[in-house]
């Protein structure tokens, strides 16, 4: 793919293009009708399930809709059993960019705090995922005994559903009887009340996410390493290159295409990683470890459901990710990467 990302391209309705004349349309139709027929089901699903909700979400973010004011009419039952319906005086209405102003100026929620936590969370997790994944892949990429066994054991965290891992680590970091504190006590360190402090609490979530994310990077990079021709290494060895020089000059450049893809995917996935924060820290203490997605979720679905605010957060999060990926790809193109 070499086109520039220009925002969420709407689901392309295949016959919607209008070429110059009817004959050209006709020819184009004859040539491509089966391709269009093949993609039609997915285009329809994307239009109904993603594009339409997305447009609605953007629209909702410009209103003040909540669970409390969504009804068009308020009905009261009188003693005689009849029902009197009046127009809801507090009905939701269009408010323009008010939600965005309130969110971005900190009038409601903790947008900037969540953004800060999200940035720390994403960068620490991705750096460790990639670093550890690369290290382990390098070690597994050489002939040795028990290689298959190590590989299976190291991949196991990926096999556990994320919500189960979240519970497992929450259990391990339990302040009273968790394994982490038992081990600390065993070596003579006072037990830590992990979820009472902002940074220890965030660390537990980060440890959990690193644990479950490394196998993906490891397997992906190992796959990439195995496509690098062995002759390159042999030639380098004959030229007297040290293992480190071989790693820097052959392995790393050879891994570039894979690295770029998995780093982009990893960043996006971690940025949007909902279950870990939601289940491990639950935002403790007092919402200070919420990232953008969990904070927005709580704002929307806890207490009176605030649909418009949740949509506002959704639009903001998606914008951040889109801007990030545009810059990411532009940076790649500058270095001559065709991707």
């Amino acid at each position: 793919m070499t086109t520039v990302t220009a925002g969420p391209a709407p689901a392309p309705a295949p016959p919607g293009r209008r070429p110059a004349g009817p004959s050209r349309l006709r020819r184009s139709w004859d040539r491509h009708w089966y391709a269009w027929a093949m993609v039609l089901p997915v285009v329809l699903v994307l239009a109904v399930l993603i594009f339409y909700p997305l447009v609605r979400g953007i629209w909702l973010s410009l209103t003040d809709l909540t669970e409390a004011n969504q009804l068009a009419e308020v009905c009261t039952r009188s003693i005689t059993g009849g029902e009197i319906c009046k127009e809801n005086p507090n009905r939701w209405e269009f408010v323009g960019l008010d939600n965005y102003a309130r969110v971005l100026t900190g009038g409601v929620g903790e947008f900037w705090q969540w953004t800060g936590v999200t940035l720390i969370w994403t960068s620490v997790c991705v750096i460790f995922h990639y670093g550890l994944g690369l290290g382990l892949a390098t070690m597994l990429n050489r002939p040795m005994r028990l290689r298959g066994l190590y590989r299976v054991l190291l991949v196991l965290p990926w096999a556990v559903p994320a919500f189960v891992s979240a519970f497992a680590w929450k259990f391990i970091f339990n302040e009273r009887f968790g394994l982490a504190n038992s081990l600390l006590t065993a070596v003579g360190i006072d037990p830590v009340d992990w979820f009472a402090n902002r940074w220890t609490s965030l660390s537990t979530a980060i440890v959990t996410n690193i644990w479950l994310g490394v196998p993906f990077m490891m397997v992906a990079l190992l796959g990439g390493m195995q496509t690098i021709p062995g002759e390159l290494y042999e030639a380098a060895e004959i030229d007297g290159a040290s293992p480190w020089q071989r790693f820097v000059n052959i392995t790393l450049p050879g891994l570039r295409p894979v690295s770029m893809t998995v780093l982009l995917l990893g960043t996006i996935w971690t940025f949007n990683m909902f279950p870990i924060i939601f289940l491990v820290t639950e935002g403790q203490p007092a919402g200070q470890t919420d990232i953008l997605v969990t904070g927005a979720y709580r704002a929307a679905f806890e207490g009176i459901r605030n649909y418009s605010l949740a949509s506002t957060y959704g639009v903001l999060i998606l914008s951040i990710l889109l801007v990030f990926s545009i810059f990411y790809r532009r940076a790649l193109r500058k270095q001559g990467e065709v991707w």
Binding site: I50, L54, V293, A310, G314
Partner: peptide, 9 residues
């Protein structure tokens, strides 16, 4: 890239 929060509502 879609965060769960944008489509869920």
């Amino acid at each position: 890239m879609f965060p769960v929060t944008i489509l869920i509502v």
